[in-house]
Design a protein around this nucleic acid. Structure first.
Lengths: 390, 390
DNA sequence: ATAACTTAGTTTAACCAATAGACAAAGTAT
DNA sequence: ATACTTTGTCTATTGGTTAAACTAAGTTAT
């Protein structure tokens, strides 16, 4: 219960954060306009912008158009003040990006994964990270941190509690990587990182409450509430794939029955032995492109089940938008129609208003970019003040 | 995007709020201990406590035990500085309480409802409120506000958008009552108010992330995240009763199929024509007490379905505790065992750890008390500062 | 071209909340 | 009686925001 107390340093952090956010979102923008947008005094803005410039986080790029008086000096957020590395650990592959502070990708790398023992994976990972770090241009802050997205549950300390597809249990990944790299490391669940990626740099940039559905070998969800990732009491929120949509349906390995991901993820391929020509989504997409009827029918059914689960989440959460990502989003042409139909039919009318279902804009990169953003976010240190109205 | 900016007034509000919360929770407590608990300087605590005393929100109740030095002057939150009225509007009944600022009930009133037209209901409500207001003892602030819990969806402006069981649509209840009463009025969904009641004064007082399930004629849920009610993008979050647990199950009036509340609320009685001796929960409870086998079997099945839905919510939300309230909680002796069994079997193991399922402590009063708390909360004006770590 | 007006950004002095540290008050332990 | 503890207040200082005056640099009307 150690609350943050108020003092002048906190005030300064809050206002600096507000100003930096405003410049990031409205750039290019003048001090005067920042003052009007934020309600902060012109002098306050001038002083804090001065400091941000000294810290290389903001740059003046010269005068803009006059609107009947002195020309404004335009400000930009300096996305090149430092760089971050974002990694996505998948079952058969590991991918990573080098990004600037605005999430722009400068370099990319990937490698196949055959073994999953912790030692092999982490040393491979450290190698990739070092490789990307070397490609970062010179900058005031250099590499500011590393973010990792993993297919499993992660607790607050960055320990991977359980990642069934990797066979991992209780792996203190953050601690280990921080020791080896000497840099701040953040570990996130794959869907949570993806949600962050789409929220900040993809399809969800205007949403306060957002649901990201990552459909692949299972289904995970990332829940954004009030512009921030909701992690739950112990960090395990978002295991929506194990929501039962058939109370007495098939048994799932998790102990539940009729889990959503048995019907609406790649796990659904397992029941179609002999009917489907493959158990691999990209191969199936290829078959669908060639007009293979059974495959197309299966994707449509999968879209219907996706819609059933999304309806449940929308009715409970009332998000502003739902973003669908993960490998299965490649099958969009065949799943989208039934999905949208089911949601339109089944969702409560008031929830449907102003709610949008979109597909990922960052595609297969959303998790990496979101992981990088976790590191960036920690570096920039956001502060928010809320005055609940209830 | 009008953010709250930082200045000294904000600092003072934050610290005052922290101190008042500390006194409320730890009372009786000395200034010195508040200083230690909060990390605030002794002088700061002294000054702000002085102001709180002047505002009648805190009282000094004399010296406590010495622990080897000067005796501490003990402080109490003055729950009698003002009073609030909380109302629960049900389909066949309206109930209301007069509470002090600590949620203690001073007076209670209820009346049967036969008609549901807005005029009749509001004038009846205003009458009840006035009756309770007259019973409030003299106090520095008098009646500080009114809270109402209604069985339907409410938007941010306190307009009841849709309350099917009352036949209401787009009723600007808050506006209307504020005009008639000349006092601040807050309107909340019944389950949301219940969640607040249990969180502040009932079974959920130590939880940051909490799920309140109100099971009665339907199922509603109240979602508490970070100690605050989550209302969703437009205020409609928590319609969990319309989560499908049978993808191709019975049609629901909402447009969905297999909705949870068809199986786990009083709506389940409708499919048991001729088997159940009644369609009224309190009568059925009576039959069960007398050993009526069909009724007992039905409650057990209902408990099982409650467990199925709760499992879904727990897997997605990872709350610290789940609290079950509403009329159906009267059937606890027959539903609890199957419910707990199902949840224990089906929930993901990590979610289950440290998670508790409890029944309402405030019983049929949780909504009223929670509604009153909404008014109290607005009066005391909480402020929270968060520094997300992601 | 010149005066009047606008807009951008800085400087100045005032204000005010938190803080450290000294201090007063009131107890206990030896 | 003396030394020590703990509680709470007082005082001077620090450091942030702010309003208002001011400087800088443009546009518009006559």
């Amino acid at each position: 219960m150690t609350n943050i107390t108020g003092d002048q340093a906190l005030v300064k952090r809050i206002n600096t954060s507000i100003i930096l956010d405003t410049i990031r979102q409205q750039a290019p923008v003048s001090r005067a306009k920042v003052s009007k947008l934020t309600g902060l005094n012109k002098a306050t803005v001038s002083n804090l912008v001065q400091e941000l410039c000294n810290n290389h986080l903001v740059q003046e790029i010269g005068p803009g158009q006059s609107s009947g008086g002195r020309k404004p000096q335009l400000l930009l957020f300096n996305g090149q003040a430092g760089y971050a590395v974002g990694v996505e650990l998948r079952v058969k592959q590991m991918t990573a990006v080098l990004t600037d502070l605005e999430g722009r990708i400068l370099a990319e790398d990937d490698t196949a994964l055959e073994e999953h023992d912790v030692q092999t994976v982490t040393s491979l990972m450290v190698g990739m990270i070092h490789g990307l770090m070397r490609q970062a241009p010179p900058s005031p802050y250099g590499i500011i941190g590393i973010g990792i997205g993993v297919p499993g549950m992660v607790d607050e300390d960055g320990t991977v509690l359980f990642a069934p597809n990797l066979g991992w249990e209780m792996v203190p990944l953050q601690l280990q990587l921080e020791n080896e790299l000497g840099l701040p490391v953040t570990i996130d669940n794959e869907a949570n990182a993806g949600a962050q990626g789409e929220l900040r740099f993809g399809a969800g940039q205007d949403a306060r409450h957002l649901l990201y559905i990552s459909a692949g070998s299972g289904i995970g969800s990332g829940i954004i509430i009030n512009g921030e990732l909701y992690k739950g009491a112990r960090g395990y929120a978002g295991e929506s794939g194990h929501m039962s949509i058939e109370a007495d349906g098939r048994e799932c390995t998790c102990g539940n029955r009729g889990c959503w991901e048995l019907y609406a993820s790649e796990k659904s391929y397992d029941n179609k032995n002999g009917i489907l020509p493959s158990k691999n989504t990209s191969e199936l997409v290829h078959h669908a492109e060639l007009g293979h009827q059974e495959t197309i029918r299966h994707f449509e059914e999968l879209g219907r089940y996706l819609g059933v689960g999304i309806t449940n989440l929308v009715n409970g959460f009332n998000p502003q938008s739902v973003i669908i990502g993960g490998p299965l989003s490649d099958a969009r042409p065949w799943i989208e129609e039934t999905l949208q139909q089911v949601v339109a039919q089944r969702t409560l009318p008031y929830h449907r208003e102003l709610m949008e279902i979109r597909f990922s804009e960052l595609g297969s990169r959303s998790t990496m970019i979101g992981a990088a953003y976790s590191a960036i976010s920690q570096f920039l240190g956001p502060v928010r003040v809320s005055m609940p109205t209830n």
